[in-house]
Amino acid sequence: MNQELIVTNPSNINYIDPRVKLIHTLIAGILLFVVRSNEGVLLNVAFMIVVLVFLGLYGCVLRLITYTGVLFLLTKFLSYFTDGPAALIGVTVYIFLKFAPVLGIYYMMTKSISASELVNALERIRLPRSITITLAVTLRFMPTIGQEMKIIRDSMKIRNIPFNLWSVLKAPIMMMEFVLVPLMMRFVKVAEELAAAAVVRGIEKSGRRGSMFDVRFRKQDFIYLLIVILYAIFLYNFEMGVII
């Protein structure tokens, strides 16, 4: 998740409540299975581009356009071949293209919502504490796993234990043990320390948690949601028209 806090002022017109974005994510997931035609996929991506521009994520817009453009041209090219390995590649590329709108959703959820905002939103939709606290910890540790793996890999190298494709294929279970055991050992310890640090900061207090964000629905949230729903209905009808 985003490690910078979202500095956007909630009174700004492009501040959309995370709960609304969650609903958008759900709708986008359903649309993934509604859209069959290439035109539909492109429309879907176009809509995501509009959303990302609205949210001010211009860098992501560029990446999304590039990704979609390259894959679209590839599918067009590959559709001339229907046998041999080209067909296999064709299927792969097609599936990746199908997921292009999802890339937009992924950018929206990770770049425009901070981890603590997301957890707060999930709390507001009455998800139990057990889920929200666990999820908060998961989001906190996801970015560190890469670093920890790198340290373990370095220390394996020093100990003359090579870690590469060949060694993994040769002794997969041993390699699994070498990588996982130090990682798990360390995280068991970290878990205990972190839990203690949370307890001394009052996490065991029951009842509604406070939030540094002023969480409530605003006018723009309803408008945004309405647009998303209207778009979904339009796309459904469009697809029906194409297929039949």
Partner: peptide
């Protein structure tokens, strides 16, 4: 191993949020 969030502001807010204070 004592940070619960990934951002300095939300980390400082963490304890207060637990206490259920107003925004």
């Amino acid at each position: 191993s004592q940070f619960f969030t990934t951002n300095t502001i939300s980390e400082v807010a963490f304890g207060c949020e637990n206490l259920g204070l107003s925004s």
